[in-house]
């Protein structure tokens, strides 16, 4: 099957530092790819080139079979690549549906010439997308500041999905969540996969990644060092690839292996 997103030989330099060096990878429709690596491995920089925050210094990005130049976050969004940052980027003083529609508000005309916000429409549509994702939030009229961490994450995900994301990039989606909520978010990722969305997950939580990902890409010092199908690897091997040790499996919690 053809890749939904494919990056070829992407390179990004910051002055003398090569943050991302000649990295190629791909994501298919309905596939979850875990992007792993220690701090400073270049995961975020790689992702930011796909989401339009940075422009690559070298290499090409293909989306749905065509080469694309993603020169701004808006450009990424316009071709249906949505990014969920760790801090979620929600306006806490606005309610859930206003956040889902932020920047793309639905307007209606009153007296034929005055544009006003169509709150009923936005509320109804937001309910629809939350239902589709099997998310329950007490009231969409509540401000974000009154929601729990998991509910916020759900609102942020709904926002991406409502705008028909084909590729969803998630940066540490389970960090800062309680155990139950982590599980909910992971369930949500599986649900999105079943709906045919390609997903890249960056996470330090190996357990989470192993429970949802189909494939893993491991980076170290700006380079891609390995790519593994989830069924053909185990956490020990991944840890050794991340830290760059040849044989660490004996030292690190053998009990974790199943």
């Amino acid at each position: 099957m053809e890749y939904l997103l494919e990056v070829k030989n992407l390179t990004k330099r910051f002055g003398g530092l090569v943050a991302v060096n000649n990295v190629s990878m791909g994501v298919k429709e309905g596939e979850v790819v875990g992007l792993l690596g220690d701090n400073g491995a270049g995961k975020s920089t790689l992702i930011k080139m796909v989401s339009g925050v940075y422009r690559p210094d070298g290499g090409k990005i293909f989306f749905m079979g065509k080469e694309v130049i993603i020169d701004s976050p808006m450009k990424a969004i316009s071709i249906a690549i949505e990014t969920l940052y760790q801090d979620l980027a929600l306006a806490e003083n606005l309610n859930a549906y206003s956040n889902i529609f932020l920047g793309r508000e639905k307007l209606k005309k009153v007296l034929k010439f005055i544009n006003v916000l169509d709150n009923d429409y936005m509320l109804k549509e937001s309910k629809g997308v939350l239902d589709r994702l099997e998310i329950e939030i007490p009231s969409l009229r509540n401000r974000i500041s009154m929601l729990s961490g998991g509910q916020r994450q759900a609102v942020a995900i709904s926002r991406s999905i409502y705008w028909n994301a084909k590729l969803l990039i998630m940066d540490e989606p389970t960090a800062a969540l309680g155990v139950t909520e982590q599980k909910k978010v992971l369930d949500l990722i599986r649900l999105l996969r079943s709906q045919g969305i390609g997903i890249i997950v960056i996470s330090h939580q190996l357990y989470d990644v192993f429970s949802v990902a189909d494939r893993l890409v491991i980076m170290r010092r700006g380079e891609k060092v390995a790519e593994r199908n989830i069924k053909e690897t185990n956490p020990d091997e991944i840890v050794s690839l991340i830290v760059g040790a040849e044989k660490v499996s004996e030292k690190i919690c053998p009990a974790d292996r199943d």
């Binding site: 979620l88 980027a89 206003s98 920047g103």
Partner: peptide, 16 residues
């Protein structure tokens, strides 16, 4: 206007 006051980041990333 409210979004900018609530979170500048959110407003920027929402394309405002």
């Amino acid at each position: 206007t409210y979004a900018i006051g609530g979170s500048m980041d959110a407003a920027v990333r929402a394309g405002i």
